[in-house]
Design a protein around this nucleic acid. Structure first.
Length: 317
DNA sequence: AAAGATCACAACCGCTCCTCG
DNA sequence: ACGAGGAGCGGTTGTGATCTT
């Protein structure tokens, strides 16, 4: 509490990272591995606080990060996971290993929130009741209900992820395999880097170039990956079915190996939301609308959606 | 073409959690 | 058991880019 913020020190630089700083940070981490962030600024001579270094690494420099537009699968997955988990971006991000929590959070705030709002207001003015706070219930009640909800939601989700739907989605909306996605983004990065080199340091201050430049370096530094990304912990049994289902649904290879915060979230001890923050009921309630929207998407693409593929409010509550 | 409005996203801030002595 | 320090998370802000008038 009384501890001074780490960034209050004089001489600590703020704002966008320069390519030079990125290079320094990346080469340091290549050598020493991530962690011990406190020591990074002193050991590298970077005029950044440890937090800033960690953030820069985890959000942009870490190998294997996918930048750019979200795919439809990713979008849908975020919506589903957000409905299940609320704004627990780190937990959501653990199911999208190529995306960072920051990225997902930003995407949610800038795109999906609006999209859903639009959708809700487009459905007979339900928005008010949808967005209104839930009726107060006791914590015990709430936790019991939550566990039931989660169980049912998982069931419904698994149903929704039936093989028929899986194939139609995977056929039409193939997510690029992680490696190729990264490679392709690396190509772009290399292109941008060329531009940066050509323009000299004039443009080097722009953060986008900064990012690209650094990632180009990282493209050849996958050795760091094993250290940089936390080694995949085995998801406990409670999460395996959901994670498997999601994996089969979205066709991501890396689910099985991703950290599973969800498993913790769904622990049977009712500790889903350990703090007092309640789950986003406003997100849970309109799930049928979400589903409708998602399914409408499919229909619009001429897909046959199995009847039971809908997660409706009855399933959730 | 210019000015203002809006959008998108990188980065910061403050809080909580976790670990270790 | 307790406190300090470090790491992680989620909300918010600042700013450059893009769109609209």
């Amino acid at each position: 509490m009384g501890r001074p913020p780490c960034c209050d020190k004089l001489g600590v630089k703020k704002g966008p990272w320069t390519p030079e700083e990125d290079i320094i940070l990346v080469s340091y981490i290549q050598e020493h591995g991530p962690g011990n962030w406190r020591a990074v600024p002193t050991n590298t001579g970077l005029l950044r606080c440890s937090k800033s270094c960690r953030l820069r690494w985890t959000n942009y420099l870490r190998p294997g990060i996918k930048l750019g537009n979200f795919t439809e699968q990713e979008e849908k997955m975020i919506i589903h996971l957000q409905a299940l988990l609320g704004n627990r971006w780190a937990a959501i991000a653990s199911y999208l290993p190529q995306r960072t929590d920051n990225d997902i959070k930003n995407y949610w705030n800038t795109h999906l929130k609006k999209k859903l709002k639009k959708l809700q207001t487009g459905h007979g003015g339900h928005s008010k009741e949808i967005l209104s706070t839930p009726q107060p219930i006791s914590r015990g009640q709430w936790e019991r209900r939550l566990q039931t909800d989660i169980h049912m939601a998982r069931q419904a989700l698994c149903e929704a992820l039936s093989p028929e739907k899986q194939t139609c989605l995977i056929d039409d909306l193939k997510p690029a395999p992680p490696s190729s996605t990264y490679a392709s983004s690396t190509e772009n990065i290399a292109k941008l880097l060329k531009g940066w080199m050509r323009n000299g340091s004039k443009k080097s201050q722009t953060s986008s170039i900064t990012t690209q430049n650094s990632l180009t370096i990282m493209a050849g530094a996958d050795s760091v990956c094993s250290e940089g990304t936390p080694s995949p912990s085995k998801p406990d049994n409670s999460s395996i079915d959901l994670s498997d289902a999601l994996e089969s649904f979205f066709g991501f290879e890396s689910f099985g190996s991703s950290n599973s915060d969800l498993s913790q979230s769904m622990s049977p001890d009712g500790s889903l939301f350990q703090d007092e923050s309640k789950p986003d009921f406003s997100a849970l309630v309109p799930l049928s609308l979400l589903e409708k929207w998602l399914l409408d998407d499919e229909v619009a693409q001429g897909k046959d959606i199995p009847e039971d593929a809908t997660i409706n409010e009855n399933n959730i509550f």
